[in-house]
């Protein structure tokens, strides 16, 4: 290529901006433009000339995009939180379900391990507790859920004796990103996520403990990004932002 020819330079810059300059030729052009301010000027002139075509009727992106972007920036993660379409295609299901499925599988495995450990020592008692939890003697379970890349965290207590869950927020929430959405707390049961309630961004929030939630073994909690007032479907619709096991805490 004779990059001295002014017309050719202009045409190549135009084709670069238009996108028809491809492959090796495109890379070669980029390299040249990097060392040639006049060629960069040609590119910029074309970007301005064709710029009007890019101005379409605005379409608001889904609210998940902003928070995912925040997390990518703060965690230095250049990989999108949403899986690439090619990956989700392989799984045959939306990306979100793969994450939940993974969590649920992990929970199921931990439960199995724990049952295996308990059974030899206390099999009869274990089975009895499985079938008939004793609320009066039950202990609180406590989980610390940290939002990656921020100082925001919640201390979540599940109290079977009081039949309620308290969540206390600490740290700074990502102000602008959460304006139009809520963070929802889930219990990741072996059968799938069960909605618990919307987490407070400041102070303490209370939500009822679901009846029939077995208060033993490993309890995993997760937080997802949802529309205001929580998922409309009863299942997570947004990305999972964090998850943590609840530890058996103090006697209530």
């Amino acid at each position: 290529m004779k990059y001295q020819d002014q017309n050719l330079r202009r045409t190549l810059a135009g084709e670069y901006v238009l996108g028809t300059l491809r492959g090796a030729a495109r890379r070669r052009f980029e390299k040249l433009a990097g060392q040639d301010p006049a060629l960069r000027d040609e590119v910029q002139a074309w970007e301005q000339r064709l710029g009007g075509l890019a101005e379409l009727e605005p379409v608001a992106p889904p609210p998940t995009a902003w928070l995912s972007l925040q997390l990518r920036i703060k965690t230095g993660n250049s990989v999108p939180l949403r899986r690439l379409p090619s990956e989700s295609r392989a799984a045959g299901s939306p990306p979100i379900w793969r994450i939940w499925a993974g969590l649920a599988a992990a929970v199921a495995m931990v439960s199995l391990v724990m049952l295996a450990q308990y059974r030899p020592q206390n099999q009869a008692d274990q089975v009895a507790r499985l079938q008939q939890p004793e609320p009066s003697a039950a202990r609180d379970f406590v989980a610390l859920l940290k939002m990656p890349g921020s100082s925001l965290q919640w201390t979540v207590s599940l109290s079977p004796s009081r039949g309620m869950i308290t969540a206390e927020a600490a740290g700074d929430y990502i102000k602008l990103g959460l304006r139009s959405m809520d963070l929802q707390l889930w219990w990741v049961s072996p059968q799938g996520p069960v909605p618990l309630g919307v987490l407070p961004l400041v102070g303490e929030g209370v939500m009822p403990l679901p009846k029939g939630m077995p208060m033993q073994g490993q309890i995993t909690l997760a937080v997802s990004l949802e529309p205001p007032a929580g998922s409309p479907t009863g299942k997570p619709t947004g990305p999972v932002l964090t998850s943590a096991p609840a530890a058996n805490g103090l006697q209530s």
């Binding site: 101005e55 379409l56 009727e57 605005p58 379409v59 608001a60 992106p61 995009a65 902003w66 972007l69 102000k175 602008l176 990103g177």
Partner: peptide, 13 residues
């Protein structure tokens, strides 16, 4: 964040 609020809908379109 303000830049995103201003312009994301234009880019998304």
């Amino acid at each position: 964040a303000e830049l995103y609020r201003c312009c994301s809908a234009h880019l998304y379109a």
